[in-house]
């Protein structure tokens, strides 16, 4: 991959990651009004805008903390595209009514498109993984929760009253089960294209 230059707006990503209240406030003051306008013009109201913005910021936070998120375009473009996509998805999900969408090309420059797309896929996967995790049986859920919280497999085993070998085998089988649930879902195949 070619080395792309980090955009100065990376400070917004870093600020989110550090849970910096000033930066979060700045994002609302600077970038959110445009999102509210867009949603209001496209069959939504300010409650919808509030949810979409919040969801989008959580997705960005998760991606930044889990995978490293390096911004090579203005935050404005990236953030707006993400909110827009999320809103259009929301409309598709709920609306049987006529939807009029002012689809216009607001941003040129593929960096923003590409990054927004990546984050979007990341967010969808997170949601799917969480949904599938919740479908696991109680025993698996408990074991996996303990495993990833406690770290030491010996401790996990003794806290659950099983042997180390059994706990470790169970861990692989539970993640295996989760792997199957995820792979069977049609959504995953769409996302993994």
């Amino acid at each position: 991959m070619s080395e792309k230059k980090l955009h100065e707006d990376q400070k917004y990503i870093d600020g989110l990651l550090k849970n910096n209240a000033f930066i979060i406030q700045a994002i609302y003051d600077k970038f959110v009004p445009k999102v509210i306008n867009y949603i209001k013009q496209n069959n939504g109201d300010s409650d919808h805008a509030q949810d979409i913005v919040q969801d989008t910021l959580i997705t960005i936070y998760n991606q930044a903390s889990q995978k490293k998120l390096e911004l090579t375009c203005p935050f404005d473009a990236y953030f707006f595209l993400l909110c827009k996509r999320k809103w259009l998805n929301e409309l598709k999900k709920t609306a049987h009514k006529e939807v009029t969408i002012n689809e216009e090309v607001l941003y040129k420059g593929d960096d923003a498109q590409e990054l927004a797309f990546e984050t979007d896929v990341f967010g969808e996967k997170q949601a799917l993984f969480t949904e599938m995790f919740n479908k696991l049986g109680t025993a698996c859920k408990e074991l996996l929760t303990a495993t990833f919280k406690i770290k030491s497999m010996e401790e996990v085993a003794s806290s659950l009253g099983v042997t180390y070998a059994y706990a470790r085998k169970k861990k692989s089988l539970c993640i295996g089960k989760l792997t199957e649930l995820v792979q069977e879902s049609p959504k995953f195949n769409l996302l993994n294209k």
Partner: peptide
């Protein structure tokens, strides 16, 4: 399958650690 397994492992790790 391996890639999905790996991805889920890192998802779970992050979910509970952070």
């Amino acid at each position: 399958s391996f890639n999905t397994y790996k991805e889920l492992s890192s998802f779970l790790e992050h979910k509970f650690e952070n």
